[in-house]
Every structure is written in structure tokens, then in C-alpha cells.
Design a protein around this nucleic acid. Structure first.
Length: 277
DNA sequence: CTCAGTGTTCAGTG
DNA sequence: TCACTGAACACTGA
């Protein structure tokens, strides 16, 4: 599910419920796909009795800073969610509607009971998420291999243009490349290109200075807007392509203009030729 | 029944 | 080295 804004919401949720609390109990699923090179036993032993000091994010990766290393690192894949048992400000709650009352939830991969009676669970229905242990997450793969985070570390206009001049691939693929821009996923890439009025098939090193300037500002604007909305998609501006990119793929329009679909880099790309060509 | 999906990685090719 | 493709991973819902 998540692109940068959803992961940031998960970060805030965990920060809200876990900072300053100690982990009393850990239940970790036996799932060798989600758990990368680590056993459930080791995860449990590593986390039990630890104090949560911080919650950090870079791109779509999330990790906990504990009072003792190694630290747990998470990637949510397409269907990962953090859920909590107990009251949480509504805007931080995981998915807008989770009528699922069971606890711990279905597809739970990690379940933590913290001091103060708070419980936190990581679910992953489709098992594309990952849990890792790292001594220094920022300086070890996979996080060390990520590019800039558009929210935390957007390059200056000059630097941004430099990055583009060095890449020859198509811009849609470049935006999805996590070693270029960490946290951008399929719908954000399409939204940025639509709002910046750029054909997704253009090559990075053939953009003009003003193309690159628009792209940078839209990247920042779209991510900031989605993060301020706490990744509640219903709150995103009505004018955004986001609201119209899915559904039946025929006869879709935005402001009277036809939405077309292409496959670029193996992903469906929604775009509006009249605006972006 | 089939296929695509708010994602990533790896093998193979040019 | 870089860029691109397709497959794999696993499951649900249109």
C-alpha cells in the first residue's frame, strides 16, 4: 500500500504510542519471506525489554531506535500496516476504515505489547513487506542505498538538475527508482508528471531547466500535501489525477481531457496527453 | 477464470 | 556500468 506519506503516518503513529515505552512482550510470525535473514526467536529476543527512544523514516523504510542495538527495520511492501490496540488520534489510525475487530489482527507478522497497555501490530497480507535487524540502519543496506528523501532532504534546484543530467532513462522510471528519490511510488510519480505537465516517456537528461524546476516543485508540493493530510486520500485536492487514475480504464477524463494508460518500467502509468505532451 | 495492483529484487540481455 | 525487461514473491478483488 504505502508510499512515503503512508509510511510517514505509520511513523507518527508509532512515535505517538511507543516513544518512552518499554517492550514487554513480542510475538513474531514464522515467515521466512518477511523476516530477512533472521529468525522469529532472534527478533523476539532482540526486542523484548527494550525501550523505544525514536522512530525514524527514510523513503518507504521505517525503523525503531531502541536503548540497545540492533534495531528493527521495516518495509511495508504493498499491503503492510501498523495497527494499534487502544485509543489513537483518528487521523493517525492505520487504514481509514478497519472494521476488522480481531486482535492481534489477521496477517500479523509482529505484535508488541508495551508498557502502559499499548499494543502495536505490523500486518502484511500480501507478503511483500520486510523485517530486518540492523546495528546502524542509516549506514547499512538497504537504507544506505536509497536516494534523497523528498520530505527530509530535497536537493537544491542546482543539485536536482545535476542529478537529472546524469541519467538517460525515462523520467517515470527515474522517479520510481528508490536509489534516486526514496519514497516515490506509482501514483505519486504519475501525479508529479501530470501536474508538472511532462510526458512520462521523456528522458531525464533531455529536460529543460524549467521542466526540471517544475518537476522539483511539484514533487515537493505533492508529497507535502499528502503528508499534511496524513495520507488520508479522501482529503487530497479534488483536482488531482489521483482521484481518477483507477477504475474502468475506458472513457476516463479529467477536466474534459482524456486519461490514457501506458506501461513504463513494468508499472501502469496514467497520464493526460493533452496536458503532458 | 484471469489479471492487475500505492513494491522490490534478481537474472538476463543489449 | 547503465538501462531495460520479465519473472518472482503472494494474495485479493474487480
Amino acid at each position: 500500500m504505502p508510499e512515503l506519506p503512508e509510511v510517514e503516518r505509520a511513523r507518527r503513529l508509532i512515535e505517538h504510542v511507543a516513544i518512552g515505552h518499554r517492550i514487554l512482550e513480542v510475538t513474531c510470525a514464522h515467515d521466512p519471506i518477511v523476516l530477512v535473514n533472521v529468525s522469529p526467536t532472534t527478533v523476539t529476543r532482540t526486542l523484548t525489554n527494550r525501550m523505544v527512544l525514536g522512530v525514524r523514516r527514510w523513503g518507504k523504510h521505517l525503523w525503531l531506535e531502541l536503548d540497545q542495538r540492533p534495531w528493527p527495520c521495516f518495509h511495508l511492501g504493498m499491503t503492510g500496516h501498523f495497527r494499534t490496540k487502544g485509543d489513537v488520534p483518528l487521523q493517525l489510525a492505520s487504514s481509514p476504515s478497519h472494521a476488522d475487530q480481531t486482535w492481534p489482527p489477521r496477517f500479523s507478522k509482529l505484535h508488541l505489547v508495551l508498557t502502559g497497555g499499548i499494543e502495536l501490530a505490523l500486518t502484511n497480507k500480501r507478503r511483500l513487506g520486510r523485517i530486518r535487524l540492523r546495528h546502524d540502519p542509516e549506514h547499512e543496506p538497504p537504507i544506505s542505498e536509497l536516494g534523497f528523501d523528498p520530505l527530509l532532504d530535497l536537493p537544491s534546484p542546482t543539485r536536482f538538475a545535476e542529478l537529472f543530467s546524469k541519467r538517460s532513462g525515462v523520467i517515470k522510471s527515474l522517479l520510481l527508482d528508490q536509489s534516486f528519490a526514496a519514497g516515490v511510488g506509482n501514483w505519486i510519480a504519475d501525479e508529479v508528471l501530470y501536474q508538472a505537465r511532462l510526458d512520462p516517456r521523456r528522458h531525464a537528461n533531455q529536460l529543460s531547466a524549467s521542466d526540471i524546476r517544475r518537476l522539483r516543485l511539484k514533487l515537493r508540493h505533492i508529497i507535502q500535501t499528502a503528508v499534511r493530510a496524513n495520507a488520508d486520500n479522501t482529503q487530497l485536492p479534488k483536482s488531482w489525477l489521483f482521484h481518477r487514475r483507477w477504475g474502468r480504464k475506458s472513457n476516463m477524463t479529467i477536466q474534459g481531457r482524456r486519461i490514457e494508460h501506458l506501461t513504463i518500467g513494468g508499472r501502469t502509468t496514467a497520464w493526460v496527453p493533452e496536458v503532458q505532451e
